[in-house]
Design a protein around this nucleic acid. Structure first.
Lengths: 231, 231
DNA sequence: TAGTGGTCTAGACCACCTG
DNA sequence: AGGTGGTCTAGACCACTAG
């Protein structure tokens, strides 16, 4: 009598991927149910479930109760981006980090932000440097109702970016990426020309129903974000 | 005698998040082990594991055997981007989709790509239109060694983008995002001016050790990518 | 070397949804 | 209405690694 070797969920995942890649299971194909696969692979259903759920999370499989599991019909590339604290990002690229505050003050937000920030909010503008050279401009609004303790922060040596991420939690947020032409002041501060193509990230974070902060990041020319795709 | 209500892993996740948000467990704090938490919540360890593993995947927790689980010290915003087939992306935005092939031919790749593509590869350039207006330029190389069947594809009505994603699987890939100035031809084809800020996506996909295809996508001005952040 | 997370099993119940 | 995935349990062994 032999004791069965445990089957790892990764090995199942690999086998399922192989069948998809080799078109044994083409896009749109409904694959066997978990019970059947567990029997075929000689393992517990939970193990199959773990493998298939993981593939569903990357968008390769689509699962619905009763309907079963099918190979995704409309393949999407799903990429995961890690957006770290700017200091960390600069240091990870092997540069020395520098930071200069431009301005910090409590002012009236533009009309478009007033519903989220209230009649008065903290605006912080600053630059982050990599090896003494401009890396990214930070233009930020902070909701003082949500983050009253920001009043006590000078943001002269520790950036709002770093302080907020380390100190103030959020429940959810939005982020967007775009390319825009540098305005005059942006170009001067980044050491480039007016109209230069600038990679821009805008991010807003919320604590339940309350906006915590929103920020506009303008990266110096040459910046790019890279990541990997799962297959 | 009462039967204990099953505890869902989501409810555990919510409670753990609450403790993190309210700084009961500040960044860097080592939280109790799975066994302890299971006892506290009155559930199986597997349920706790599911909740904590999920939080670790979003970067909120860091887990290491023997060292335990701690609240992430260097918070990163982790965003998941879905990059769909271009036709699908345009239609999802509520526009009509159009497509025009510019050129298709087997030529010698530039020196930088030759190691991956070989001495001769298929180059396809085309434009994708949203409501008859330029949306994105596609400049693509296809490895004919890996995808010989591309020789039979005219790419006149079905784009290489769509055909490849639907037909040719890949095991892994890379993707990058940047902002660059439009070159003369790019600007003409996109209906903008030379030097305009262009959002660019570059993507390369591989099947094991063989490059399948690489593509340079130049989006028309105004394009932006949006997504949400988990907390 | 001992403690912690990682994983597997066998069984069970349930929610959802398609046919 | 019944099949399928989603989840929970209780127990077990294992792999990694900090101390």
């Amino acid at each position: 009598m032999t004791i069965p070797q445990p089957v790892s969920w990764q090995s199942i995942q690999t086998e399922v991927l192989r069948r998809i890649h080799e078109r044994e299971w083409p896009p749109g194909h409904v694959i066997p149910g978990e019970v059947d696969l567990a029997a075929e692979f000689g393992c517990a259903r939970a193990t199959v479930n773990r493998a298939l759920r993981s593939l569903a999370e990357t968008g390769i499989l689509e699962r619905r109760r009763k309907a079963g599991t099918r190979v995704a019909l409309h393949p999407v590339s799903r990429a995961t981006l890690d957006i770290p604290i700017l200091r960390q990002e600069i240091e990870e690229r092997g540069h020395s980090y520098g930071y200069t505050l431009f301005k910090r003050g409590e002012v009236r937000p533009p009309k478009s932000l007033r519903p989220m920030l209230g009649p008065s909010a903290l605006r912080v503008t600053a630059i982050h440097l990599a090896d003494e050279r401009p890396f990214v401009l930070e233009d930020r609004w902070i909701n003082l109702t949500a983050v009253g303790s920001a009043r006590d922060q000078p943001f002269e040596t520790v950036s709002a970016n770093e302080w907020l991420l380390q100190t103030v939690p959020y429940t959810h947020g939005e982020i967007s990426f775009a390319a825009i032409a540098a305005k005059k002041m942006t170009s001067e501060r980044l050491g480039t020309y007016e109209g230069a193509p600038i990679f821009v990230i805008e991010r807003a974070t919320w604590d339940h129903d309350q906006m915590v902060t929103c920020v506009h990041l303008s990266y110096a020319p040459g910046y790019q974000i890279k990541t990997v795709l799962g297959g």
